[in-house]
């Protein structure tokens, strides 16, 4: 075989190799996007129970303080031996503190949003969501990707509550996936006490990154 033919064959092989390298370098390794529709993160707090528990804890604190004062006075008595009475008061104080600890744990649970949500639906929706009672304390509620407003009816521990979110939508393409983002303009309710703080600037309150606290 003439050298030039050999050379041309080598060149053809080289060209093929280059094309293969280019093809492999173009291969996509992008991860998939989980959420293409906007959503709202929401924590439900039983405000009535919380108020009642805090009042009971306050009452226990006052009683314990009274017991401490009584024990201090009795301890100063040098005429009569008050040891039995003081021991009895200390036992009562220990019992009250145990009760207070249990109440504090319940308060922590309520404040973290551990409540039973039986269902979330929307007048404009087609399917109600039934979150699991053991699901995460932060509930993820889908917003309507076709409208700038989403209204919900929420069943919480046997009662019905309303919730309305208004937002501005933005469609973007990320990693070959078309997604709809929502920037919250307001979250309101007639039956729930709503608070939320935007994680980013107030002009772009991205719904997916905002957690709403709803007290009922």
């Amino acid at each position: 075989m003439r050298p030039v033919i050999k050379m041309s064959l080598k060149f053809s092989a080289f060209l093929s190799l280059c094309v293969l390298i280019v093809a492999l370098s173009c291969e996509d390794t992008e991860p998939e996007i989980d959420n293409i529709d906007p959503f709202l993160n929401i924590v439900f707090i039983n405000g009535d129970s919380l108020d009642q528990l805090n009042a009971l804890i306050e009452e226990i604190d006052l009683t314990v303080k009274d017991i401490d004062d009584t024990i201090a006075i009795l301890a100063l008595d040098s005429v009569i031996d008050r040891t039995e009475t003081i021991d009895s008061l200390n036992e009562e104080k220990a019992a009250l503190n145990t009760t207070k600890s249990a109440f504090n744990l319940t308060v922590t649970d309520i404040e973290s949003g551990s409540v039973r949500v039986f269902g979330i639906s929307s007048p404009a929706g087609i399917n109600p969501i039934i979150p699991s009672p053991d699901s995460a304390e932060i509930f993820r509620i889908p917003l309507n990707p076709a409208e700038d407003i989403s209204e919900f009816e929420i069943s919480l521990e046997g009662q019905q509550y309303d919730l309305k979110a208004t937002y501005e939508r933005n469609t973007v393409v990320e990693q070959r996936t078309v997604i709809v983002e929502a920037f919250l303009t307001d979250v309101i309710s007639e039956s729930l006490e709503i608070t939320y703080i935007c994680q980013d600037s107030s002009t772009t309150c991205t719904s997916n990154e905002t957690t709403v606290t709803a007290r009922f």
């Binding site: 929706g125 399917n127 109600p128 076709a146 989403s150």
Partner: peptide
């Protein structure tokens, strides 16, 4: 066309 599906609302088709 593209579709944005939702757990609650109708699929948004554009």
């Amino acid at each position: 066309m593209y579709e944005i599906s939702s757990d609650i609302f109708d699929t948004y088709s554009v």
